[in-house]
Design a protein around this nucleic acid. Sequence first.
RNA 1: CGGGACGUAGCGCAGCCUGGUAGCGCGCUUGACUGGGGGUCAAGAGGUCGCAGGUUCAAAUCCUGUCGUCCCGACCA
Length: 578
Amino acid sequence: MRWSKAFIPTLKETPSDAEVPSHQLMLRAGMIRQLMAGAYTYLPIGYRSLRKIEQIVREEMDKAGALEMFMPAIQPIELFHRTGRKEAFGNVLIDFEITRRDHKVHMALGPTHEEVVTDLMAKHINSYRQLPLTVYQIQTKFRNEERPRFGVLRTSEFLMKDAYSFGASVEDLNAAYDAMYAAYCRIFTRCGLEYIPVEAESGPIGGDASHEFMAPAGNGEDTIVRCGGCGYAANLERAETGRKTPSIATSSDAAAMEQVSTPNAGSIEQVSKMLKLPATQFIKTLIYVADGTPVAVLVRGDHEANEGKIRRALGVTSLELASPQVIEEVTGAPVGFAGPVGIKCRVIADHDIPLISNAVTGANVADAHLTGVNVGRDYQLDTTFDLRDAADADPCPRCEGTLNAVHGIEVGHVFKLGTKYSESLDARFLDESEQRHAIIMGCYGIGVTRVLAALAETRHDENGLNWPITVAPYEVVVAPLNAKDEEVTAAAEKIYAELQAAGVDVILDDRDVRPGFKFKDIELIGIPLRIVVGGRGLKEGVAEVKWRNDAEPQNVPLDTVVAQVANMVQEARQSLNG
RNA sequence: CGGGACGUAGCGCAGCCUGGUAGCGCGCUUGACUGGGGGUCAAGAGGUCGCAGGUUCAAAUCCUGUCGUCCCGACCA
């Protein structure tokens, strides 16, 4: 490619609408432009990078035995009714009616394709002999995000690779899942993206039925915890902590319990400000209704209750926050003043609760709190549970290490679906003994556009982007410093042509602009390898070669520069592709 | 859906409070010079001030409504 013939509208200044680095830099580098909130055009160099990621995904999917196909983005709403996902998706589903002759057709833009593939397989799979089978596609997905944000990280229209496995047994499912998991690791490695596979919500099957692949990034929307010691990593909702039940005894410096007036202050934040005591000194008392019975759940004031853990600790199936009426019945006070002292229902507490001496709690009286509340004396506990979200610095559940909370961007998800869709869409097969079973499914997604954004988000410096060679829009740029100097341009043209012939993805910056201008653009876009041909070097018979990451260029003789660069590119590719 | 901010040239912004001539930087066009880190000089082009209504002799400016975009939160199979 010749830069003079390319369409790379770089920006010197940062558009004010862009907040996060990936958005700012991709905009500035001329890779994307916004059409409206949550919808972006990929300009030529942005699309080149996107397609390179796509190709890596494709190669690894094929290698893992998945078969590529292509399903419609428009889907009949009826399929979503059958699986109950019209309601589950709610407003996220983009659906509409169109008129065809004399009748209306109600359809949706696919937010994903479980319904479509399962329907397809329902019609074509009859026998266990046709299984197992994994298919995939790379296609645009549509979701009406309530709040699109962070540029290309969260959009209403995005490119996704979605794969679906169909098996006759749990063994089939596990094999497909493991193959996908391994392929994902290779994909992200080849893309040069740092990633952490984490245990995620397990869904209907339980166990290790779901993993998310997270790219650690400060602006990531998800929080995960990870142990530096053993590598345990999990989604915040799912993460266990290594905390144990402490000794439950009244503190030796327990103060007298006192009731204080806290008019109209029902939240921890308000009371904390009023009493000038930190939230860590508070016991948060949440009233839930568990399988029809009210239960008080105690967590420390600065912690978040985890409903999944509470449900498991209680061994119940239904759990929801109690209504104001129930709360009044149990506490004798309006919402906001509940506490464990004298409460009229079962109480369960998080491990951290007995450790709070002289705690502040609601008084179970309107507009009043208690201070100096101590376990054993003022309220009783037999044992404690892990009832809250994991937090930074919690002990690891698997080893002696410590958990660290990190933000991450979800770039992939593998999920053991089971028979949820095959049951509702009647996708069944006959086994060896003519028994009919629902096909056992798995689904596996990669946000292709998100991988690109995550790379931009994590690989940049003050000068611009810094792409891994496998994803960069061009691997190498050849920059003649003076377009009017015939010797310089001739030398650059020669290098450019020979690199092309050597199979290197190269762009020639043949624009008639000053050197500094070229350097800035090249660094902003983040082309990994730069070859500079200038009058100065030419006199000595050398060109300058510099990696985007290097501080200083190295001089390479003109007659070997092509061979050397081709070699460097080859090695860089290999270090990622393996 | 709750809270907040912003819409003025392609981009970044000033002007608005206190109504009267639409301005700056970058970018763009032409020419000359220049040629190793977004260069200099000169001459230019480019605007329904988001949109609609209202107040006024007069509205970018004041009032009302509306649309759009961004941020925080809720939500995210």
